[in-house]
Design a protein around this nucleic acid. Structure first.
Lengths: 341, 341
DNA sequence: CTTGGCACTCCGCACGCACGAGTGCCAAGC
DNA sequence: GCTTGGCACTCGTGCGTGCGGAGTGCCAAG
């Protein structure tokens, strides 16, 4: 085995051992636990080299080495082959997810599943609405000036929104509106539906013009900032235990981030752009407080132009191959399930 | 001041100091921080008596005293007068909640608010559907055998459910069904709607009987176990920091409980039966692992026959008067808001 | 019943020490 | 040129010891 190759084997061994034990790993322990075929002295030399390259570091003199963020990055990029899920695992996943009878249910189950599989904190963003078309719009008057708009989409999603309208609503008006709105918007993509509705404002029945325009404007406004695909669901927070015992520094910022969905979306970030599993290690992430946590995420969804995102968050010292495999597997299953729906 | 009265004053002082400092409180510190008008020796005697009664205890000989669960119970039942919220707080609460334009929003904001006010973990159960009446039922075919049922309720709630029907659906059948279902169920309470629907199965159009009965049966089944008012929302988990530093023993079981909504509902438990604020202290709760956490909760909702529940969970060592006041205040505001809707 | 005094207990903390794990370097061997 | 065994050196950790302080219980006097 060439020297370079062995160095990488050593790096891999260090990562694996450190992930498993959470303790700095020394040269001696390394040769014992792995078949490296060389003595500890040789390993020491290799380690010194790896340290020069910035891939590993020692917490203090005369302690073992731990991987640096750069080391993990190298490990993930070059030393990792995604484990395939076992047949049993596959079965478990699909049977678990197929029991769902509701979008909420699918999302809920996915989070749980992911948390369970990876033993980490799992995050799932709701599927985007981008590709959905409008199936039906129901208008319900909650009071004379408050209107509930229920949007039923082709994919079975249901969105609702209360709109404050600045005029009095009558039953006839509403009935008329309902028909017009539906004929205008039905079959349109949600992104275009707002536009289609806007056009309505022109072809108003005579004598009611201002009322109409006003209501339609409210509707358009409500539909264009539907925010529900920014919803995220979090699960497996109890796995935060694996973050280490240091509450203030590692667990608390994580809990705080988990409460802020906006922050979470930022965290999952660019993963949304592809169906590839992407990994963000420690400081690579956008949030300073979370500099010792990694994110493994991937886009998912029925098609490439309508991706949402899902993944897990854990300490930099995490089982990358396992997490990546689980994330990918769950994303695939969820995608196919959403496709069926 | 009579002796008994002073003993209670001492108990109150101990609870307050311990809650504030999280440290066992000694006789000397007590006379310094509170105007008890007696010497530390006298307080010591009182403390000995309180300990005999099981209201306080010392972690070890020659340490200060801490309240027992029984002591907290006594404090809550007899020594506490609910603080009224300040005018500013009231304004803050109502303005914060009134910004909501959606049931989800109301619930979400309530949780945040409660967590913020109490600096603890807040839990809000979705309002019950009990009193709602059916406004409209929309049926959408997702595939030839999968039917999306959307239930729009008078209160503006929207419930959805996918039903697997064991027959092929045609457009005409669906249109017909839609009309019949709506005329049968509209205006009914949700609890009665299932029954009203069931009656439909009899007055079937000739020739389609079995198909009809089958679909209606599916609908009835789906409607009778709507489970959405069992949904709970949790917030303020970052406040778990105040649980103390002992992760394994106090924080982890809490995180686990927070993931299990069923467990949470059990935890909030009987509070649902009244609009009173109820307090469960430590071991009084139904869950052994949470023997050092207390629950402050109350029923809320538009009317007495349709109560849901909301509250906070924290360490037994928590600010009961403050939490109780906040829980009550939020419950009231949410109730009135739901009432308007 | 209250109070000051006093002896006693026990926790927490700092100090010091020895131990062990791990390293880096070197000289010898393949 | 790599590899290897040996060896001295460095630190971090764990453990026993000793001390100070907070707090108590009890007692005798007011």
């Amino acid at each position: 085995m060439a020297v370079e190759d062995r160095k990488l084997a050593v790096l891999r061994a260090i990562v694996e051992d450190y992930v498993a034990t959470q303790e700095p790993v020394g040269s001696k322990a390394l040769v014992e636990r792995h078949q490296l075929g060389v003595s500890s002295a040789t390993v020491r030399n290799d380690m010194a080299a790896l340290e020069d390259e910035g891939l590993i570091a020692q917490p203090h003199t005369s302690a073992g080495r731990i991987p640096t963020d750069k080391g993990y990055r190298f490990f993930v990029d070059r030393l990792t082959t995604l484990k395939a899920m076992s047949a049993a695992e596959k079965r478990a996943i699909s049977s678990f997810l197929e029991g769902a009878h509701d979008l909420d249910d699918v999302v809920q189950r996915s989070v749980r599943l992911l948390a369970q599989l990876t033993q980490q904190v799992a995050i799932v963003q709701y599927p985007t609405l981008a590709r959905s078309t409008v199936r039906h719009i129901e208008l319900v008057a909650l009071s004379t000036t408050r209107l509930l708009v229920v949007l039923i989409l082709s994919t079975g999603r249901v969105e609702q929104r209360v709109v404050e309208v600045p005029v009095e609503l009558s039953d006839e008006l509403l009935a008329d509106l309902r028909v017009r709105v539906n004929t205008a918007a039905a079959g349109e993509r949600i992104s275009e539906a707002a536009g289609a509705l806007g056009a309505l404002a022109d072809q108003v029945p005579p004598g009611t013009s201002s009322t109409y325009t006003v209501i339609v404007a409210s509707l358009v406004e409500a539909m264009s900032n539907h925010r529900s695909d920014e919803r995220v669901v979090v699960g497996g927070t109890a796995n935060l235990a694996r973050f280490g015992d240091n509450f203030e520094q590692s667990i608390k910022p994580m809990l705080e981030a988990l409460e802020e969905h906006v922050v979470l979306l930022k965290l999952l970030g660019e993963a949304t752009s592809s169906q590839h599993v992407t990994v963000r290690i420690g400081h690579e992430g956008p949030i300073d407080q979370l500099s010792s946590t990694s994110v493994v995420a991937t886009g998912y969804g029925a098609s490439d132009d309508a991706l949402s995102v899902l993944g897990v968050v854990g300490p930099t010292r995490m089982d990358y191959p396992g997490s990546m495999a689980a994330v990918r597997a769950v994303a695939r299953y969820v995608s196919t399930i959403l496709d069926e729906a």
